[in-house]
Amino acid sequence: MRAFLYDRPTAVDEAVAAVAADPQAAFLAGGTTQVDLMKDGVWTPDRLVDITRLPLRGILVESQQLKVGALTTMEELAAEPVVAQRLAFVREALLHGASVQLRNMATIGGNLLQRTRCRYFRDPTVSACNRRSPDSGCAAVDNVARMHAILGVDERCIALHASDVAVPLIAVDASVLVNGPAGQRRIPLTEFWVRADEGPSIENVLGHGDLITEIDIPLLPQGWRSGYLKVRDRASYEFALTSAAVALQLDGDLIADIRIALGGVGSVPWRAREAEEMLRGTPVDPLRFEQAGRAVMASAFTVPGTAFKVDLAVRTLSRQLLTMTEAKR
């Protein structure tokens, strides 16, 4: 690990100023991605500004939304009763992510900013990585890809955004509040991440010195139900091969309204708007579930190791819809 300077400010403005003033500085929160990347030698900041003592921890429950401090841990958010009542799929996604130890460390803000798990990205002895080093190529495309993305990617980069909780969060139109050198602004999560096929070396719209201070999560209206299905090789402690976050409101046999996002498939957490539109206002119909999934996958880019994910993602979504509508396959 490269040697670095360490600061631990106590006010948000100080933290933002400290990072903004030094191009080689970065924020440090839970560290579960960052310390790992520093050990791998993939990420070599000269100065870490530890934000873990900033007053950005806690959950404010309002009538229509949760205001979640960016330093709230995954375990803390999962334990919030309102999350269980009104955002079941957020809770399920949280508890299906990582391990308890990691969830006690990892913050919600940091979770959204986690870097890809691609082993080619994480091994600096691999020179071909457009995400690390623009125009160097993509070793993953030519080698062993399995835990990689099939949506929002092309032959330049197939890096996966591996977050679980970001999947339901993007489905409910959560947004982040950002403090930066230019002041405060709000960014909807649907506009927060940059797809790999739109520029593999840029992961999100944050600028240097921008700090997520809060995540605002709209509560699902009364009468909605939601759920998160995660498919993986082992039963626990693994990133998703595919996942589906679904929230819907049934009116008899009719899907009155629906929100869908998919995980394990995108270079960014993947809002499946085509599927939502195909299903909104239609009767519960297993065949239509599958067609909706296929529509989302129409733009998939696969390599041999990820080809199975197209079918698996369709099935994952179908299964979750079947479960939530109690329809038969």
Partner: peptide
């Protein structure tokens, strides 16, 4: 709280 000391500075 249980945490991983290898990823905690």
């Amino acid at each position: 709280k249980r945490v991983l000391s290898c990823l905690t500075l």
